[in-house]
Design a protein around this nucleic acid. Sequence first.
DNA 1: GCGTCCAGGTCTACC
DNA 2: GGTAGACCTGGACGC
Length: 318
Amino acid sequence: MHSLSFELDAVPPFSFELTVHNPAGWHWYSPLEVFSGGRVWIALRLATGGVVGLRLESLGSVERPRVLLRVFSQLELAEAEAEEVLRSVEGLAGLREDMAGFYRAAEEDPILKQVVGDLYGMRDRAIFRDSVFTSALLAVAFQNAPINRTAQMLRLLITGYGERLDFDGKTSYMWPTPSAVLSASPGELAERCRVGYRAGYIRSVAEAVSSGACPTLGELAQMPFHEAKAELVKLRGIGDYSAEVILPHPESFPVDKWSAEIFWELFFPGEEMPPGAQAIRLVRRHAEERWGRWRRQAFTYVLCDRENLSKRLRAGPG
DNA sequence: GCGTCCAGGTCTACC
DNA sequence: GGTAGACCTGGACGC
């Protein structure tokens, strides 16, 4: 295999460790990525159709961040392909994202002040910066399922319809493309990936993405939040929750039954939580009033720091 | 063992 | 506009 190395800057503060290996125990880019000894390995498909294996590690510190990127490919990369890899990695890792505004806002909010202190320099997960289809697969797998079922569905989708890549002594997989998923019948998809009725949802999103009926992540980002959300909920299987999982807007707040319980405890301590949809509505409204355009960042930070927050809640004031 | 319930939503039918 | 019931699947639970 051919390999190339690059050193990338990031806008400080940037914590490589918290970003690619966050404390909530979630994957950064894919459930089948490899993380070991401070390095992360992922496989990526280029717009040209080529595939590359990537290994990332930190060379710097949170305040003087530098990332060492090693790129593995079967064929030598053209200059334009190498450039595409660099822009993709910058985008996936949020290297150019300036956190200053969010951190200033966090100073004024007791919850955010804690989570920013705990997770200083962390960026949102790469999977949400990849594509509409990838985020939609994640959102649909979360629907009406406990977390181990979600993990099972995602692994089977990736290993069944994603492309495998062996490089640098590791094995990784690319996320399935819409066309790979559409090559299977709904019955085959449901059976092989244990996704049940979600097979229809996954195929309908795949059709909308590949036909161009659904805007790309970049096009959605250019639209006002409510307009972009209206585009996504036109898709079969994409409702309020899934649309906000996918949307790259800072106003998105994809609260579900599980996260509503966490936010309820923070927003309304000691108050009994109303059933399902009502609690989600109240949490969503409170987050909008309290965190405004910072609510996506707040959502990510609070859920990644939920164990520290609940320890402090149990310990009480002081 | 076996039956029943239900989970990190969404859709449809019905009011 | 609001809401009950159905939907795949598999783990937990009671018997």
